[in-house]
Nucleic acid binder design. Structure first.
Lengths: 394, 394
DNA sequence: GTGGATTTGACGGAACGGGCAACAAATGAC
DNA sequence: GTCATTTGTTGCCCGTTCCGTCAAATCCAC
């Protein structure tokens, strides 16, 4: 039970809470007028003025120009996060590694991505590769830019306590510590490691196609299938931080054998391999095979279109249980599931709605807006949450 | 996005927050020494003393006697919720109606339950029936007892905004307002209506077999199957307040036709009717049929035992997806699923663990400790949360 | 253009609540 | 019985927000 949550040891911590509320609002919504801040926080003009002054003194925000054209009255000055504060985000995917510098407020300042061999590789090689990418990114940043933290997205199970990678089957990793090696090379910056499904959900709900929704299910598939859950506006990571591991849920007793040993897991029905096999192709083609397949679908290849149709039946089948359990506003599909959406959206919406209870038929299904960048952006959001809390305390 | 959450307009609202923290701790953990409150809240002795004084002046708590026998030092006085503050909780089940008076701190002061015909009945008849029960309960309360609110549990979909019963298939109700009629007869008390699965989960996590756990899945079945979710210590009710409606999730394409029109819903595999049919009995026997069946199982009836075995396979199958998605500490089974646990616990734990990912194999499965009282106790918890917030504000 | 209405920002005083330190009270250990 | 230890109480201090007032900046009507 969340019990020892110390209440606001007012007044000092009340000010922290209020500073946090303002900085968080600026991070999430971008430039905001001071009068809007007064309304959204419920604080008085004097309090907001004082708090914004604090944040400006810390170099986190700046006030610039007036903003308002509706009605009389003195225009309110705009407060916006300064672009000189960034975090670095790293996304270790199966096929590629992405690195980005993301400013307070969510702007992606720099972003690079390069391919990776889809084979098991020892962690230290991957870490070195990522560090070279980080250096390429930081080298191009302006001199006055400060790096405040590092966020990492990994397709695996992450310990919520010490952020070790407990298991990443698709990378071939078992119990890998990423925090120490990264921190050793980057100074004592705060480092956060998150599951790609979890941070992907966070990215889509803050910067992507589910903005403004409090109840969101994000499902993504490459080789594996993962999900991220937002309930009541908060990320649900589960008891051991491994919520959303839906890939090995049994769905088809008449299905193929899964890498986990069971028969007919969701992953064996809606993962990349499943789609390639349904279309009569081999699973060795990887991302390129999927790209080829989608090009053929666009060209009208009936075999591929039929494979997509079958695939979509199983996607709807798998989503039904999750939506019934969670009652979300919107289901966001990333990875392969997002890529095929242009071809299957109508069929998927129809099949899903047919299976859902009448009360849930309004549930929207959309493709991820951020595509393959979702995890890296989500990793940035995760670390920004931590950094904001730390900066405020100082 | 939960955005307009006004931060602590300190200092006044900080005091509310602190009062709330203390009263909530007393409600959840019962009598607590003042020094324990100092530790758990992080406040100073003076602040706790002042806050407890407030609560005592409001008639909500009392200080009585000393408590401490470990080591030297002045013993700390115990603070405990006063039993003169109660809420009324009502549970409208398919087979029965329960009414209880529950004190601050969770003690059940009075509790009655009487059977109901398992047929559709117009709402006003049920409400009148419940009101008579409420009067029977309140009539026996001491004169100095104050009733502060009413909580209702209903097996149906409840609007989170106005607490209307949008749909209760097993009661035969569509869009029923319970709040107005109850409030009309009980004065302007706060009234809260909740789904039986949701409040059942709350009851088990606060007063039952999942105390202390932050991530809990509660699954219950009578005729229908419902679930309640606790994630991060908070009840997850979903976008429209109808999370946990897992009964009509498709699980068995080769199954029977469900009342909802689909084939092989979870409800048609693990509901009461499913078990009765598997054992070769008719579905008209209702609760009595289940009681007979369990008696026969205890007596060693092999047909029934085989039916329970099959039933359990499907329970494990259904739970697998939910546990993979939510990664809970513990799964609590109520209703029929709890009643059969003595016969199937080992098989269920084994089958579930065999299907779960290795990282989740520690997930515990237990029978609900509160049995059929879970919804009524949970309804009391829901309304107490509201009442506590109101009392604190005053 | 000019003056009034309106909204916002800044400043000073007031109230409120928790932290802190000193002291009194209640117990166990010797 | 004395001392160490822990707890409750009291008075004072300090930080934070709130409130009222005034100046500044804009829109609008004339």
């Amino acid at each position: 039970m969340s019990d020892s949550v110390a209440p606001g040891r007012a007044p000092r911590s009340a000010r922290q809470t209020n500073r946090h509320a303002i900085l968080r609002a600026l991070h999430l919504h971008g430039a905001t007028s001071r009068s809007e801040l007064v309304q959204s926080t419920g604080l008085t003009r004097s309090a907001v003025g004082s708090l914004v002054g604090d944040l400006a003194a810390l170099g986190l925000v700046e006030e610039a120009g007036s903003t308002r054209r509706d009605g009389p009255g003195r225009p309110s000055s705009a407060v916006r996060p300064r672009g000189t504060q960034v975090v670095i985000a790293v996304d270790l995917m199966v096929d590629s590694i992405g690195v980005a510098a993301v400013a307070l407020g969510g702007a992606v300042v720099r972003s690079i991505r390069w391919p990776r061999r889809r084979t098991a590789q020892p962690p230290h090689e991957v870490i070195d590769d990522a560090l070279r990418g980080i250096e390429r990114v930081t080298a191009t940043l302006d001199d006055d830019v400060e790096v405040r933290g590092l966020g990492v997205a990994v397709p695996g199970l992450i310990s919520p306590d010490d952020h070790r990678v407990l298991l990443a089957p698709n990378l071939g990793w078992v119990d890998v510590d990423l925090v120490a090696p990264f921190r050793a090379r980057l100074g004592d910056l705060p480092v956060v490691v998150g599951n790609d499904g979890d941070v992907g959900a966070l990215a889509e709900v803050r910067r992507g196609s589910a903005i403004g929704h409090d109840h969101v299910l994000y499902v993504t598939s490459e080789v594996g299938v993962g999900a991220g859950i937002i309930a009541g506006g908060e990320l649900v990571t589960g008891s051991a931080g491994i919520a959303g591991e839906v890939g090995h849920t049994p769905v088809n007793p008449a299905g193929r054998r899964c890498s986990c040993g069971a028969i007919g897991c969701l992953e064996t029905e809606i993962g990349e391999h499943a789609l390639l096999l349904r279309a009569g192709r081999t699973i060795d083609e990887g991302r390129q095979g999927i790209a080829d397949l989608l090009r053929d679908a666009a060209a009208g290849d009936t075999t591929v279109i039929e494979a997509l149709r079958e695939h979509t039946v199983w996607v709807a089948f798998g989503l039904t249980g999750m939506v019934h359990l969670l009652n979300v506003d919107v289901v966001v599909l990333g990875g392969l599931l997002g890529e095929v959406m242009p071809f299957v959206h109508d069929q998927l919406a129809e099949e899903l709605n047919a299976r859902l209870l009448p009360s849930m038929r309004g549930t929207a299904v959309v493709a991820a807006a951020l595509g393959e960048d979702a995890p890296v952006i989500g990793a940035a959001e995760r670390i920004w949450d931590v950094v904001i809390a730390e900066l405020i305390a100082g």
